[in-house]
Amino acid sequence: MVEHRPLRDLVAYLVLSLGVVIFAFPVYVAFVASTYDAATVVSGNLPLVPGGRMLENYYRAVFVGGSRFMNQPVGVLLVNSFITAIGIAVGKIIISILSAFAIVYFRFPFRKTAFWIIFITLMLPVEVRIYPTYKVVADLRMLDTYAGLILPLIASATGTLLFRQFFMTVPDELLEASRIDGAGPLRFFWDTLLPLSMTTVAALFVIQFIYGWNQYLWPLLITTKDSMQTIVIGIKKMLTTTDELAEWQLAMATAVLAMLPPVAVVIFMQRLFVKGLVETEK
């Protein structure tokens, strides 16, 4: 129902704008804080317009590193986070699309059981199974490695369910037409199912990239070397000081930098979404 009522529109816009301001303001303050020196930030009288030390702060954050406790430059951390998040997102998509394919299209013993086991893992987030997972990863000597950061997080019940639901909506006739056209199961997957799933893949990629990017507890546990830390951990460590001034301006610069890749992923993938939504037809 689309009605045009100016007053209603005005109220709607006001409420929405207020929401935007409330959400965006802290981000803006973080940005402003990243353009002053430490003393100004800590003094509590932070101006609302950006200061003049932006380039210097960002240069130090990216290439030099923060406090004594955090001697890796942010550039390294960004790379670590990026590899981890991409690894988790891609790994999750591959694992979940394949397991959904198996569950939907193959009749094997204990198929239902397999599905329910995957389903149940939804109820066990990383935090709950953190000790056994840590033990396994440590025994496999994967502490301080990308594999250790990525592998335990790539099993995804959510993704499997998402793909399962999508596959169930693909008409059976497409599979049958493929069979008559001489395509085996993998060919059907590759030639038909995967192209049709691209929208779902894009959606899952965005969600899982951000999930991977924002991981805190797991990287904190299994990384001991500074050079393997992710940016989220980096921000935290920058503020860990004993008796000197925490370099808030660098932490804020790092936070702003940490926001950029997920934003870029969302913006880039959004175009794919729209494309996928317009072009796919089941």
């Binding site: 006739e173 030639d191 049709l196 089941k282």
Partner: peptide, 9 residues
Amino acid sequence: FQNYALYPH
């Protein structure tokens, strides 16, 4: 097939 089952992509 009844619904043609063309490959949409």
